[in-house]
């Protein structure tokens, strides 16, 4: 009799291992959408997380405030110095904007890759086992979010939407290793811009890798790296970071640059999901 029971358990174990492998295989497949059951579970837990999140954030926020007060004096000094620069820049931006608009009117070109509709969202959860760096935000398809949209903070690009369900979505941070995680970018050089692709992340240096840069391109340290908008979904001109170091890549045919990200991937509370205006217009037309 005990032998028999042992066998039954063994069979159960084997069956569940097969089940496990099948499930992992299923979830590793490139999926456009999550199944409705997954979406339902995600949205429900998202709601629960949201309930817990608010009071916890308040408590944590209090301690953070206490720490912030300590730094206030130093920061204030620095900011005052910056303020004067800012006024100058502001004036310049205004004139440039106006000029741009006028020129566009002359050319009769209304849409631009740069324009986007921002959707603001709050981070309500994070993947606790940090094998894939993902965060969960409280806006979903109902608010117009779709897979692969860019996600930014005021300082720069932090990632893209991995999956969107009805009321929540998952954001894959740029630091996640993913071969498909390519972003078309350009370096703002002195004479013209240099295009390349952001492919991967160096954990040790904490820098993004900008690859496929032409060998004769002139890139220097501290130059800004922005999204080019040619990849299809991201708008143009979202800041990614600045060049830290340039070296020839493994085959010596192209160059590779280490890019220090402008935004802190780890410290995100509020994010903005970016919807390109051109796509929104096209959607409206097809409807």
């Amino acid at each position: 009799m005990p032998q028999f029971f042992l066998n039954k358990r063994l069979i159960l174990l084997l069956v569940s291992i097969i089940f496990l492998v099948a499930l992992i295989g299923f979830s590793l497949k490139e999926r456009k959408e999550l199944t409705w059951s997954e979406q339902f579970v995600k949205d429900t837990t998202g709601f629960v997380q949201f309930l817990f999140h608010q009071p916890a954030q308040l408590v944590a926020g209090f301690f953070e405030n206490v720490q912030d007060i300590k730094n206030t004096y130093k920061e204030n000094k620095l900011l005052k110095a910056r303020l004067e620069e800012y006024v100058m820049l502001e004036a310049e931006v205004q004139t440039l904007k106006k000029e741009n608009e006028e020129l566009r009117a002359v050319l009769d070109k209304k849409e631009s890759l740069r324009d986007f509709i921002p959707i603001e969202a709050t981070v309500i959860g994070r993947n606790p086992d940090r094998w894939q760096e993902t965060v969960i935000i409280n806006k979903g398809e109902q608010q117009g979010i779709k897979k692969d949209m860019a996600v930014i903070t005021p300082s720069g690009l932090i990632g893209k939407i991995q999956h969107a369900s009805q009321f929540t979505s998952t954001v894959q941070l740029l630091s996640a290793i993913d071969r498909q995680n390519r972003i078309s970018a350009y370096v703002q050089g002195k004479d013209g811009s240099v295009f390349g692709l952001i492919e991967g992340y160096d954990d040790k240096r904490q820098a993004l890798l900008l690859k496929q840069v032409p060998f004769d391109a002139k890139i220097e340290k501290k130059q800004l790296v922005l999204t080019s908008g040619l990849g299809g979904i991201f708008p143009k001109g979202l800041p990614i970071g600045e060049v830290e170091e340039v070296e020839p890549d493994e085959y010596g045919l192209t160059k590779m640059a280490y890019v220090k990200p402008a935004a802190n991937f780890y410290d995100v509370d509020e994010v903005i999901v970016v919807k390109r205006k051109i796509d929104a217009v096209q959607e409206g037309e097809t409807k």
Partner: peptide, 9 residues
């Protein structure tokens, strides 16, 4: 389902 998106593990 919620955190890792790799089912089964």
């Amino acid at each position: 389902v919620v955190y890792t998106e790799i089912l089964g593990v």
